[in-house]
C-alpha cells in the first residue's frame, strides 16, 4: 500500500462509457478523483501507443473504457479494442510492467454505478502497487 494518490488516464468512448461517467456525476455518485478522462469517439481509437505515452509521461495507470461487446456504436470497434489491448496487456507484462497499470473494461451509458465501481477498483489496484517510476532515468 502506498499513500500517494495514483494518477489514472482513462480513455472513454463517446457513446457509452463517457456518458456513463456523466451519469455517475449527475447522479452524485462517489468515486475517487484520480481519473483524468480523455474522450475518444470509440475505444477502437485507442492505439497501444496512447497507453504507453500516458505511462511515459507519468500516469500510474491507464484505463480504457468502451461499450459492452455487441453494443458498439460503430458495431465492431470495441471488438478490435479487445484484441489489440489484450496483446498489449500480455506483452507489457512480459516486458515487466505490472498488469494493474493497463486495464480495459466496458461500461454503458446507463451504468453510472458500474463506472464508479470500476474506477474505485482500479484506483485501489494502483494504490496497492508503487507509483509509476518505470520511465524514470
Amino acid at each position: 500500500m502506498n499513500n500517494s494518490e495514483p494518477k489514472i488516464v482513462a480513455f472513454c468512448c463517446n457513446w457509452c462509457s463517457y456518458a456513463g461517467a456523466d451519469l455517475a456525476g449527475t447522479s452524485r455518485m462517489q468515486y475517487p478523483a484520480n481519473l483524468r478522462i480523455i474522450r475518444v469517439m470509440c475505444s477502437g481509437r485507442v492505439n497501444p501507443v496512447f497507453v504507453l505515452k500516458a505511462l511515459r509521461v507519468g500516469a500510474d495507470g491507464v484505463l480504457v473504457l468502451g461499450c459492452h461487446p455487441g453494443d458498439c456504436h460503430y458495431l465492431t470497434g470495441n471488438y478490435r479494442t479487445r484484441r489489440r489491448l489484450s496483446i498489449t496487456m500480455k506483452f507489457m507484462e512480459y516486458m515487466g510492467i505490472e498488469p494493474e497499470r493497463i486495464q480495459v473494461s466496458w461500461c454503458s451509458a446507463s451504468e453510472g454505478s458500474r463506472f464508479a465501481e470500476v474506477v474505485t477498483e482500479v484506483t485501489a489496484d494502483l494504490k496497492r502497487i508503487s507509483p509509476n517510476r518505470l520511465f524514470n532515468d
Binding site: P69, G70, Y79, R80, V104, S105
Partner: peptide
C-alpha cells in the same frame, strides 16, 4: 489479418 478480425465472445477473462 489478425487485428482486423474478431470473435464476439473472446478474451472476456482479460477485461475487468
Amino acid at each position: 489479418p489478425l487485428m482486423a478480425a474478431y470473435q464476439p465472445d473472446e478474451l472476456e477473462d482479460l477485461m475487468r
